[in-house]
Structures are given as structure tokens and as C-alpha cells.
Nucleic acid binder design. Sequence first.
DNA 1: TAGATTGTTAATCGATTAACAATC
DNA 2: TAGATTGTTAATCGATTAACAATC
Lengths: 205, 205
Amino acid sequence: MTANIPDIVIGRLPIYLRALSRLAVEGHEVTSSHELGRRLGISSAQIRKDLSHFGGFGKQGTGYQISYLVEQLRQVLKVDQEWEVALIGAGDLGTALMHYKGFSDRGFRIACVFDNAPQKIGKKIGDLDIHAIADMQSVIKERGIKIAMIAVPAEKAQEVADKLIEAGVQAILNYAPMTLNVPGNVKVQYIDPVVNMQRMTFYLV
Amino acid sequence: MTANIPDIVIGRLPIYLRALSRLAVEGHEVTSSHELGRRLGISSAQIRKDLSHFGGFGKQGTGYQISYLVEQLRQVLKVDQEWEVALIGAGDLGTALMHYKGFSDRGFRIACVFDNAPQKIGKKIGDLDIHAIADMQSVIKERGIKIAMIAVPAEKAQEVADKLIEAGVQAILNYAPMTLNVPGNVKVQYIDPVVNMQRMTFYLV
DNA sequence: TAGATTGTTAATCGATTAACAATC
DNA sequence: TAGATTGTTAATCGATTAACAATC
């Protein structure tokens, strides 16, 4: 069942989930594919088609009960639990990620931080000790961590990724501005703000 | 010519540009669609097809001269110039963005910062003064700024976006975890790390 | 020349949309 | 009941890939 669902559909589910949570916060209890589509700039047909891969979550004539759909999407995406995440890199970006409040209620918790600057190792960041990268693999193996965020300079990113994967990490959010080379069973997502900016300048006058 | 190029093609060009720059740093002078494709996990046919929208940049038998292709892609994407960018929000994330060194050699410079916390206004961040959001529109109009990064809480993001657009901004990089409602002539790109993480957990065991 | 690689065309593949019966 | 909206099928649309002549 899981096997033949297009990546592009999975990619939209977090957007639906985010919009639905927002609707709930705004006090709505029920919504429709049309309302959701209008908010997101997506056709209602696409939303219904996407959701139908996982079951019938709505009711003809009335639409979707938001709390129920949120619960179902959380289950589908496996964020009805809290994932422990390893953060590699305790620079400006790593620090901002540590302080970010938005992870916990959406399924994630930064559980350990690594850096290799001697002056940082042993210091605290938030309420976590910064560990040496030399200890990274043992900590990740011991705690069974499956997800990591890479926030180190581009030159170090591939090396860090290789070690993470060797230690059992299967999902990497890479903030370093480069494409990683990983085996087929490892998922990578990229965040590079400059890429996002360069996708817009083309359209400017 | 510009009009009928698919967005999805434009979206890949910054990735090509990034990889080509990296190849150049590594000392390569020439590459091929096969080599680039191998590095990026993209088919060589797709790379050739994408590039062919903008002209013939390669040579049969030998491939692409990297410096020339980089130059051409920079022109296509309009990042052969430095764009002034407005940053709204001087919290942890805004501060990390201010300190980020990676903008300038890829076409962007943060030219002004805004926040509405009284204790921040007037303080320096990097070598820029933090201005009040009340001054945002006049500064943006005066300097003719076309690009902004939103790094404020979700509740404020739409309001900030509306003001930016009214002041003439045409491209927004939105770090707030919500979809913005904007007119058709305004481009928006989104960065929400939780969305990226939730796109991977589905595939974890 | 022989080998390699481009740019492009046609074929294939996959995603989106339109439409509507079912039904709340 | 009448109106609204789902879930799904078929049609359309668009993107990717395969293949190859051109040519460096």
C-alpha cells in the first residue's frame, strides 16, 4: 500500500496538515477540499485525489472533520509520535535550530548536538551538551536515532553524512549548500535559501 | 521566450549552477550532462533538455565548459548582479541569516533589517541598524527593493507580506510556517524545516 | 578517423483536471 | 427533499526518457 504512492503526493501532505492545523487554531471544525484548495492555491480535485490514496476521510455533502483528518494525516506521515533528531553543527544556524520552538508539536525533538570546535565541545546550547563529532556515531547508534540535520560547512557535509548513514541514520535534512551522495535507502531533503531566492529572480523585471 | 519555460525547469537551474560552481572549485574546467547528472541524481537527458530551453551551451564530443555555462546560467537566472534583500524579523533565525556568509557570491545582499521589538530597534545586527517595521514600507520604496525574507512568527507573516507587496516587493522567501495569500504577480518560496522532515518520516520503518 | 557528447524529436510515462454518480 | 461535496474514473495535459543524427 505504501509502496506505490507517488513522492509528490507525500510531499503535499505536510502542507495539508499545516493548513488544517491552522484552520483548527482559527476555530474551524469542518472544511472542504474547495476551502483548503483556495487557501493553498491547489485545485480541490487534487486534494481529494491525494487524500483518497489513504482512505475516505470525508463525508459527501459536508466535507472533512478537521480534527479527524489531522489525526489521520499524522498517522500516515508517522508524526503521531516524537522523533529524536541529531543536529550536527552548533554555529549560528545550529543555534537558531536549537532555539526553534516549532519542532515539538509537529513530531520532532532535537535530542543531541555535535560540533568539532574545541571551544564549543562541553558547552551547553539550550539544555543540551555539545558533543564532539568523534562521539557522534556511538551516541546515534546507542539512542537509535534515525533522523539528522546537517548544519556544517559544505566542505564537511558529505563526510558527516557518510558517518551518519553508517551509524544508522535514514533521513537527513541538509542545510549545507550541496547535493549529497547517499544510498537509495536514505532520504535527503535540502534547505538552501539561496536556491529558493534564485528560483524567483528569473521572474523579476 | 521567457514566458513558456516551465517553472519546474527554472527550479532546477539553481541546482545545476550550484553543482557547476562546486565542480569549478574542485578544479574541473569541462563537464558533461552525464557527469553532472551522476552527481545530482538526475538523468543526463533532462539536463540537456533543460539547458536547451536557453540555447546551445555545449559542444558535441566534449561537453560544457564550466566557466561559460556558469556565466550563462547566472544571466538566465538574473543573478549576475547583486540583489538587495529586506529581512523582516531579527530573532534567532533573522540573526542567523544576517550572519550567513553564503548570500553575497550567489547574487544577494541583505540590505536592511526590520523588527518591532522596542528593545531591538536601533540596535545593530552585523553592520546594519534594526529599523522599526513602521519604517519598512518607506525604506523599501525608497531603495527600490524587490525581494524580502520573512522571519517573523506565523501570526504576523500575512500582515507583513501584505505591507511588503504594497511597497513593491515582488519576491518573498517565507520562513513562517504558513502559506501566504499573494497576488499572481508576486512569487513566494517557502522554507519550513518541519515540512521537510515530515516528507521523510513516511518512509521510515 | 573513431569516440564521445550534444541538441532535438518522438515515445513513454505520470500527474492533474474535469466530470459525475453516489450520498450525506 | 434540495444542495453540497466526496471519491473515483476517464480525459487531458505536461514532463521525462529514449534514441539518434549531427558534429566536435
